[in-house]
Write a protein that binds this DNA or RNA. Sequence first.
DNA 1: ATTAAAATAAGGGTTAACCATTATTTTTTG
DNA 2: CAAAAAATAATGGTTAACCCTTATTTTAAT
Lengths: 212, 212
Amino acid sequence: MIPITILVADDHPLIVKALADFLSSHGYNIVATETNGIRAFHKIINLKPRIALLDIEMPDLGGLEIAEKLFGKSDETFIIFNTVHREQSIIQRANELGVKGYLLKEYALDQILECIQSICNGKPYFGNDLTVLTELGQEENILTKLSPSEIKILRFISQEKSTKDIAERLFIAEKTVEKHRSNIIRKLGLSQTKNSLLIWSLQHKEELLGIH
Amino acid sequence: MIPITILVADDHPLIVKALADFLSSHGYNIVATETNGIRAFHKIINLKPRIALLDIEMPDLGGLEIAEKLFGKSDETFIIFNTVHREQSIIQRANELGVKGYLLKEYALDQILECIQSICNGKPYFGNDLTVLTELGQEENILTKLSPSEIKILRFISQEKSTKDIAERLFIAEKTVEKHRSNIIRKLGLSQTKNSLLIWSLQHKEELLGIH
DNA sequence: ATTAAAATAAGGGTTAACCATTATTTTTTG
DNA sequence: CAAAAAATAATGGTTAACCCTTATTTTAAT
């Protein structure tokens, strides 16, 4: 039997090495390791590994963005996320992008093996304590309540832009941006204190990058 | 020769395992591994390992806080930090707390061995690209420019407290807190935009926890 | 084609975080 | 103890982020 080919990417070399060693010792064929998102993306395209085990936070290009770029194109590679993020919106977004497995870094190593096995048998694997929303549940993601413009503006806010900055960049009136801001605050159920939206957006940067 | 005893603590089990395996395979005696700060602290007290290799970000008790609690007490255990933080203030704080080694997670594994060797020979080891400030350089830490009250207030700000909240908790006038805020902004050289201080404090939470 | 949803915008108002200046009291330190 | 540093506080002002309401235009969906 030909061993299953795997690409491993994570921004910490130590984790990359640990994962690669662990999987190697269990009979998998590690065809590449990377600590940079863009390089990982190119290697997935060129090497077409059976599985890409990706972190979500990586320099230049995050795991969600890689999954997005690959969506539809490469059905040869199954993507697994290995991340610290347990937010429903990220998990749901991963699901939408056809990601086959989702693991938290806090999990024991065994779950990585289970996950790979499961996927190779055609069954997606999302960690058991995650609110999995495959098909049925639909366990709504709070970000889906927002309109496209609202998400666009929220992303600017998470990049520390002021209402004025955003209005200028989008060629709309400041008043419009303000209206969007208060709509977002209402939809997200945030408090009416001054910087609640800024703080929320900073805490949900990763999620915002994944959605467009 | 009796092997050197080591305790390894990091909030990610994968990293703990990787470090423990790696060090074991190089002849060290891993007496304990932990993913929780408080438990790591107690194990250091009880097991008195020669070396404690600690992450800074851990649940319940961070590496800096462990070093603080051990300061003066346990001269039997040498502390090494293995972290993503490269901020001068954290490095300096580690130095002040008698931490003997400081490694970044992005470093190659070899440096961990070098670090342990160096420390066991009585020579502290701070990563070569870190601005080390052992004795001479003094390469000032920006946080040392702040007075104790200013740091206290900055910590509240990083916990998303408003000027009013802070004034109430410290039993001082809001105007006093405001004055401190603008002094902090001036000392840190931040911009005069509305939320510069909040953003800065959120981005430097870890450093603020280490200093009192 | 009609309705619903989203995006656009303005008027008018509150609050909190910033600015500058001045000044008194308390604490630290040489 | 005297000088320096820090903490305290007030007066007065600007700005940006929030609130509310109303309204027109654009886009999407049935």
